[in-house]
C-alpha cells in the first residue's frame, strides 16, 4: 500500500502540489485524472524519488520511502513513460531486459534474453522485433516495448504515465486492455495517469482526481459517473463550462 500524506512541491514560484493526500491500496489499479499541468506526473516522480518533494511523506507498506536502500526500493517498481523512453542506442530486447542485465536483479545474458522475448510476446510483439532498434518501431510498438520493460522484472508496483497519449483509438484500446490484463494477472499495484476517459474506464479499480495541487475526489470507478462533484462531472464529460474552466 502506498500512503501519500501532505505532499507539496513547488517549481520556483509555481506551487504544483499543495498537500496531496492519497492512499493507493495494494493489488488495485488506481487511475489519477486531472487537467494538464496539475501535477500528476510530478506526483509519480515524487514517489519514485525522481523529484524531491518540499514537504509531506510517502510511505510504502508503512515505511517512509526516504529510509532504506534505494536500489531495493526501485527494484519493486516498473514504469511505462509517456513517450516510452526507450534507450535509442540499445536493441529492443536489451531495453526490455535492461534491469535483468545489471545490478541486483542481473541474470545470465541468455536467460535475460529469454525473459525479454517472453515479455515481448506477452505484449503482442514477435521475436522478430527483439533485435531492432527503437527508432525502427512505430509509436504503438514502442509503447508495447515500454510496457514489456516495465513488467520485465515482475515488479510489485507499476506506474503508467499517459499510456495512450499519441496513439490511435484502436491502439489505445489494445494498450488499455494489455495494462488491465497484466495488472490483474500479476496482482500488481498500479497507478496510471491519464486524461483519456476510455483508459480510465478500462484500467481503473479506483479513480482520484487531482486539481489545484490537491486530491479533489477519490473513489471506486463505479462511483465516478454518479458523484455530484462538479469538477469530476465537468472533467469526465469534457465540458468547457464549469468550475475548472473558471479557475484557469
Amino acid at each position: 500500500m502506498i500512503e501519500i500524506s501532505g505532499l507539496s512541491k513547488s517549481f520556483g514560484a509555481k506551487q504544483v502540489l499543495r498537500g496531496v493526500d492519497l492512499v493507493v491500496p495494494s493489488g488495485q489499479s488506481t487511475v489519477i485524472i486531472g487537467g494538464s499541468g496539475t501535477g500528476k506526473s510530478v506526483l509519480l516522480k515524487c514517489i519514485l524519488g525522481l523529484v524531491q518533494p518540499d514537504g509531506g511523506t510517502i510511505r510504502l507498506d508503512g515505511q517512509d520511502i526516504r529510509n532504506g536502500a534505494r536500489d531495493a526500493f526501485l527494484a519493486r517498481f516498473g514504469m511505462l513513460f509517456q513517450g516510452a523512453a526507450l534507450f535509442d542506442s540499445l536493441p529492443v530486447w536489451h531495453n526490455v531486459a535492461f534491469r535483468l542485465l545489471r545490478g541486483s536483479l542481473a541474470r545470465p545474458k541468455a536467460e535475460a534474453r529469454a525473459i525479454a522475448l517472453d515479455k515481448l510476446r506477452r505484449v503482442g510483439l514477435d521475436a522478430d522485433v527483439a533485435d531492432l532498434f527503437p527508432a525502427e518501431l512505430s509509436g504503438g510498438m514502442q509503447k508495447r516495448v515500454g510496457l514489456a520493460r516495465a513488467i520485465a522484472a515482475d515488479p510489485e508496483i507499476i506506474f503508467f504515465d499517459e499510456p495512450t497519449t499519441g496513439l490511435d483509438p484502436i491502439m489505445a484500446g489494445v494498450i488499455n486492455a494489455l495494462i488491465r490484463e497484466i495488472v490483474s494477472e500479476m496482482g500488481a499495484t498500479a497507478i496510471t495517469i491519464t486524461h483519456d476517459m476510455s483508459s480510465v474506464r478500462a484500467i481503473a479499480d479506483r479513480v482520484a482526481m487531482i486539481h489545484a495541487g490537491k486530491i479533489r475526489w477519490e473513489g471506486p470507478i463505479a462511483d465516478l459517473d454518479t458523484t455530484p462533484d462538479p469538477y469530476i462531472q465537468q472533467f469526465i464529460h469534457g465540458r468547457a463550462d464549469g468550475p475548472i474552466g473558471t479557475l484557469r
Binding site: 516522480k45 519514485l48 514504469m79 523512453a85 535509442d88
Partner: peptide, 17 residues
C-alpha cells in the same frame, strides 16, 4: 540532452541505474 528531454534519464533511474 535528448535522453533527458525524452525521459530516458528518468527511465535509467527507475531501472536502478
Amino acid at each position: 540532452g535528448t535522453m533527458k528531454v525524452t525521459e530516458q534519464i528518468d527511465a535509467l533511474t527507475t531501472l536502478s541505474t
